[in-house]
């Protein structure tokens, strides 16, 4: 780097200095809001710290507790993974179907795009409260309508077996968010491919499996990654509607982190939880990247 610097003429040096100057706010922010918290988290995860007294070093004790004798840790992981299993396939498929519909070239489609995307911009708290009302066991409109056709509706958020599917249902209401991303992917597919396929006698069904889906795999891959990571960030629903219940049926990972860190003020242990979350997400990313070579289509292939 120093040799590059020597080779530069005064004009170039001046420009470089101006570049670094413009970056000063970012550098400070990066050190304070990214580097420091990560290093500090790693350190804190080896300590016991309840805010009032300074942290005391306890080595691996937090991790030992987490992995060997903390049923809540495993419960929160189980809840989060079950949620992924419930909602992720539905969201990926329904999002794609919605995007295919929105991609049909008829006038006024922008209006529908606006309507379907709307749920994705409304605040999590308002959405949670709205669903709480819709899914009230006795007075909610969902169960009233079900009763009208002779079905006894479940207790939704207030039933141990139905609580998690109810949260999944809520998240599917926001499927327009995924659809918009798919739509961008769909619109990037060159139309001449479809024309060529048509000349070769392919029908729409063939075109979908032969052109649309393969060319959409990068978007699908991206969606899979983002949705997985987002599943680990479910918090508002658990906090506002269920408080993790009933019987810890919606005890999401991040909710557990919040309770440990900011209710019980076990900051050391909670740091460990956050770090494990980051490691899980990194592992998922690396694993998906590894498998992506098999099923994601890249332009250069």
């Amino acid at each position: 780097m120093l040799s590059t610097w020597r080779a530069m003429n005064p004009m170039a040096r001046r420009e470089a200095l101006e570049g670094y100057t413009a970056l000063i706010p970012w550098v400070i922010g990066f050190l304070i809001f990214t580097t420091f918290p990560i290093i500090m988290s790693i350190y804190l995860s080896f300590t016991e710290w309840t805010i009032i007294e300074p942290p005391t070093w306890i080595g691996l004790a937090n991790y030992e507790r987490m992995f060997t004798r903390d049923p809540l840790f495993w419960q929160s992981l189980k809840v989060t993974l079950l949620f992924v299993a419930f909602s992720l396939p539905l969201k990926l498929v329904l999002g794609l179907m919605l995007a295919l519909l929105l991609n049909i070239k008829v006038p006024g489609m922008n209006f529908f795009r606006t309507v379907f995307y709307l749920p994705a911009v409304i605040s999590g708290v308002a959405v949670a409260l709205m669903w709480m009302w819709l899914l009230q066991p006795d007075t909610g409109v969902a169960n009233t309508l079900l009763a009208a056709i002779g079905i006894q509706g479940p207790n939704w958020f207030w039933d141990r077996d139905w609580a998690l599917p109810s949260v999944a249902l809520m998240s599917i209401w926001k499927v327009g968010g995924s659809a918009i991303i798919y739509l961008a992917g769909l619109q990037n597919i060159p139309p001449h491919l479809y024309e060529a396929a048509k000349i070769d006698g392919a029908n729409r069904w063939h075109s979908f499996w032969g052109i649309t889906l393969p060319l959409l795999t990068p978007t699908l891959f991206f969606q899979l990654l983002i949705e997985l990571i987002d599943s680990f960030k479910v918090f508002t629903e658990a906090f506002v509607i269920t408080q993790g219940g009933p019987l810890k049926a919606t005890y999401f990972y991040l909710y557990y982190f919040y309770e440990e860190g900011f209710r019980n003020f076990n900051m050391g242990y909670a740091s460990g939880l956050a770090l494990v979350l980051v490691v899980i997400i990194i592992l998922i990313t690396v694993f998906l990247n590894f498998t992506s070579k098999r099923w994601v289509y890249y332009e250069s292939d």
Binding site: F33, P37, S41, L254, A270, S271, V278
Partner: peptide, 16 residues
Amino acid sequence: SPMMIPGHIRLIPLYS
């Protein structure tokens, strides 16, 4: 790079 890291790892150190 921070876009790839879940922001929650920051909460406790920054809170302190």
